[in-house]
Design a protein around this nucleic acid. Structure first.
Length: 466
DNA sequence: ATCGGCTCGCGCAA
DNA sequence: TGCGCGAAGCCGAT
């Protein structure tokens, strides 16, 4: 069998030399078998060195403040991964660990692997673990960006200032990197060995049936429904908080059970468009179109979210180690927020009051409950939600910390670059411009209850989450 | 309904 | 060095 070919630019080589022994793919950010450059590269290495391939996932319940709902989603997804891998004759190991990675490190030290391939994952738990592993790992160590269409280091060599500065770079490279994926070669046949029922019983300690199920098959179902039912309303309708017109793919993209690359290919096939034609800014940005909305308008609006803003978030976390604190905000915003620290707050709430949705604002309480009850807050409400945490706390650094804590604990798609970038956009002007100054916010863009009330039927929204 | 002003700084043209 | 314009707004004037 001829080896699988992978564009070398998708790979960051930490250690070059491949020793003897099987190749190990440490699946970390991408819980899928198809459309996964990391797995494909691991296959290619194994074939090239005439050896076998194994896959490991290190499951940490409570990772970055998540809980049963996130663990349940991961177990759904990993069970499917093991089935798929078994069909291809690739052994799958599940390590259950604590945040200090003791079990995983011991697994790596015991194994006699010739090389390791893993996913790009720009958050600190992974970058720190990579450094720790490299202190004892002597064989090949390869990091593959399987999360972005254009690898994060190929898009730009630095932390970008805003969407407008990264957008032309992403547009330029996307058509070139948007290739079709090769099939994963078969290494034989195996039977799955993990006792998922027992894991579920041990690790999912609260009822998780209210939340979305995980897995690649489910992700493709969600994508199909979005394309057939909702894409035509996307450009104008996606921000309506009483409708469900956004793609709903965020959790699936976050866990890597589906790749944004595949979503783009499917969207192009569905709409009959070429990628080059879709990479143009809509004239009126995010504002509602007044005239007729074309298929192209909808696809462009969707790709702006799915490609530009998603890959901008990865750029931010990749080049900014303090991605989850106020220190990562632009200077003008930090200086301005600092000046406003003494401004009188009309309301001040504690973390607990926010968490229990006990503010004076029924709209805020409703979106907080949407998040705790469903694991998915409406995308437009997330901005309002975070900006009000800034407005109703004494210290913007504390506001960031509270927003991060809640988002990571309750959102299925929490603990993701998109979440950190979104929170800092809302609270600290990240990727945004300065706006008319006002108390507490300074130059950071403000959002008001009144405006939301004028735009959308907030009573309907509030009535859903009590 | 629509428009301009508010404010800062990056990126690019000159 | 100057200038255009930007992650989804707000407010008041017309």
């Amino acid at each position: 069998m001829k080896g699988v070919l992978i564009d070398k630019r998708r790979i960051r080589t930490e250690r070059e030399v491949v020793g003897t022994g099987p190749v190990l793919y440490w699946m970390n950010r991408e819980m899928r078998v198809d459309d996964n450059w990391s797995l494909l590269y691991a296959c290619a290495l194994a074939q090239q060195h005439d050896t076998t391939l194994e896959v490991v996932y290190n499951l940490i319940p409570g990772y970055l403040g998540g809980g049963a709902r996130q663990t349940s989603f991961k177990l759904d997804s990993l069970e499917e991964v093991e089935q798929e891998l078994s069909r291809l004759g690739i052994p799958f190991h599940l390590v259950v660990d604590t945040v200090d990675n003791t079990q995983f490190v011991s697994f790596l030290k015991k194994g006699k692997y010739g090389a390791m391939v893993t996913d790009l994952h720009p958050l600190r738990p992974t970058t720190e673990l990579h450094a720790a592993i490299l202190s004892f790992w002597e064989n090949g160590f390869f990091i593959v960006d399987s999360h972005n269409i254009t690898p994060v280091w190929e898009t730009s060599p630095k932390k970008e200032y805003a969407a407008y500065s990264i957008r032309p770079k992403i547009w330029k490279k996307t058509p070139e990197f948007l290739t079709e994926f090769p099939h994963v070669p078969s290494f034989g046949k195996l039977s799955a060995k993990t006792d998922w029922k027992k894991l579920r019983k041990d690790l999912v300690t609260e009822d998780a049936t209210a939340f979305l199920p995980g897995g690649t098959k489910e992700a493709h179902r969600v994508l199909k429904r979005f394309l057939s039912d909702r894409l035509e309303h996307y450009a104008n309708g996606r921000n309506d908080i009483t409708e469900t017109l956004q793609s709903g793919l965020s959790p699936y993209l976050h866990y890597g059970v589906i790749s944004s690359h595949r979503v783009v290919l499917e969207t192009l096939a569905f709409s009959g468009k070429k990628i080059e034609d879709c990479l143009h800014k809509q004239k009126n940005g995010a504002r509602v179109h007044t005239g007729p909305v074309s298929v192209l308008d909808n696809v462009r609006a969707f790709f702006e979210e799915l490609i530009v803003r998603k890959e901008l978030s990865d750029n931010f976390c990749y080049y900014e180690p303090n991605y989850d604190t106020l220190s990562a905000a632009p200077d003008w915003a930090r200086a301005s927020l600092e000046k406003c620290k003494k401004d009188k707050r009309e309301y001040v709430y504690t973390k607990k009051e926010f968490e229990e949705a006990r503010t004076h604002d029924k709209l805020w309480n409703a979106c907080q409950k949407q998040m705790t009850q469903t694991g998915c807050m409406h995308g437009y409400m997330r901005m309002y939600w975070a900006k009000k945490i800034l407005e109703w706390t004494d210290d913007p650094a504390e506001a960031v910390a509270i927003a991060v804590y809640l988002n990571d604990k309750y959102e299925l798609d929490g603990r993701d670059p998109n979440g950190y970038a979104g929170i800092l956009w809302s609270i600290a002007g990240l990727h945004d411009r300065a706006w008319f100054p006002r108390p507490v916010f300074g130059l950071v863009r403000y959002m008001s209850h009144e405006s939301l009330r004028k735009k959308y039927d907030i009573e309907t929204y509030i009535a859903r989450y009590t």
